[in-house]
Amino acid sequence: MFIIICPYCGERDQTEFSSGGEAHIVRPKQPTELSDDEWAEFLFMRKNIKGIQFERWNHSHGCRKWFNVVRDTSNDKIHAVYKMGEKPPINK
């Protein structure tokens, strides 16, 4: 069980958070303009990276805020945490 530093509350046990999967998948502004393929790409297709992943977490048993985490999925080491809308502190 890792520790996540919530950008609003500080260091907390992972069990207080829920994962929202890959980050920076922006919901299309005009979904109706998309082909079925393009929509499926947004809806279902994931990089599912082994290595450094940019992902979303929610402090669901805390402040309920969503934020971003940079985590290495091959060893669960967290490299950075940043708020929604902020630029990643590590290059993607």
Partner: peptide
Amino acid sequence: LSKLEDYLQTEWP
């Protein structure tokens, strides 16, 4: 609630 918060905070801030 958690779904609504998700959209509110991440898609429609």
